[in-house]
């Protein structure tokens, strides 16, 4: 076996599923309201997420941050309003001579979660929701679900397409494992892993979907400073490597101010501030929500 040239390794797969150029509107939430009986979880929320940014959503406890994320990912059905996900149409995938006509928008607010996922919206959960009995590898392989053929008869046969598909998916999954440094846990059941590692596996599972939009619900909750720094590094890595658009819910203000391009502040289900981190910091309404009214 002679090798003409040395084979080097690099990430073969892009982890981003969006072909929108940076700066275009990726997600547009308009007049979104959510009620549980008499409780108004969200009232007329308007929000625009631009492609290629890290967009943080902050707010005090019970402000409706997670509700908003659940609406986007289809777990909650919004009472009113629209959630439009913009994506490039089937034609004109090349970035040259792309016209606005090639863009199409889908309303996510009426879709069940698995349809939203199929459109390229991936998420992590505030309380880790992994498949406990499965290994790290299987969990991340499950992230490939929307990209796999699920014909049971093909699976029963194994030899042929099913096996080839497994190997093809595995190649991408290994890149995710490498990116998030999960190699040493690959074959361990996730239920037995430490909290911080589980959070990372959940991030990996979402990444394996090659999402257009990544929603992270408090990825650093309950971590110490070093773990938070690590996690922030991973999020920035993903963002830089794949140009992935990230919507982030986070409580730690210093993290939010450091890594996000744009911040939206929610309080009592309403948007009370929106802008760059510095703008938001100086917004009197935001200061009031966080520190209480100065009298």
């Amino acid at each position: 076996m002679e090798e003409k040239h040395v084979r080097t390794r690099a990430y073969q797969h892009s982890l981003s599923g969006s072909t929108l150029p940076p700066g275009e509107t990726l997600l547009q939430v308009s007049d979104l309201s959510l009620r549980f009986g008499g409780v108004k979880a969200l009232t007329d929320v308007n929000l625009t997420v631009e492609s290629g940014t890290i967009h943080s959503i902050i707010g005090p406890n019970g402000a409706g941050k997670s509700s908003l994320l659940n609406c986007v990912s289809g777990l909650y059905k919004a009472t009113a309003g629209q959630i439009m996900l913009h994506r490039q149409g089937k034609q004109g995938k090349s970035t040259e001579n792309r016209r606005p006509a090639d863009l199409e928008a889908k309303d996510l607010s009426r879709l069940p979660p698995h349809r939203v996922a199929r459109l390229g919206v991936a998420r992590s959960f505030q309380n880790i929701e992994l498949f406990d009995q499965l290994s790290v590898l299987d969990n991340i392989m499950l992230g490939r679900h929307i990209h796999t053929k699920k014909d049971p008869f093909m699976a029963m046969l194994w030899f042929g397409p099913a096996k080839r598909q497994e190997i093809r998916q595995r190649e991408l999954v290994e890149e995710v494992i490498h990116l998030l440094k999960l190699q040493e846990y690959r074959n361990q059941p996730v239920g037995a892993l430490a909290y911080g590692i589980q959070k990372r596996v959940e991030l990996g599972r979402a990444l394996a979907m090659q999402p257009a939009l990544l929603l992270l619900d408090e990825p650093m909750a309950g971590m110490n400073v070093e773990e938070k720094e690590d996690m922030a590094r991973y999020i920035l890595d993903i963002h830089e490597l794949a140009g992935l658009t990230v919507v982030l819910i986070e409580h730690d203000m210093s993290v939010v101010m450091d890594i996000s391009n744009r911040v939206t502040v929610l309080d009592f289900g309403k948007v009370i501030g929106d802008g760059t981190p510095t703008e938001v910091m100086e917004n009197p309404k935001v200061i009031e929500a966080y520190l209480g009214a100065g009298e």
Binding site: E129, F131, M141, P152
Partner: peptide, 20 residues
């Protein structure tokens, strides 16, 4: 394969399964 894995996903955590 993926089919069986999705069955196990439903067993372990059905909300997360629908989200992927």
């Amino acid at each position: 394969t993926g089919v069986g894995r999705s069955f196990m996903a439903v067993r372990d955590q059905d909300i997360a399964a629908s989200a992927i």
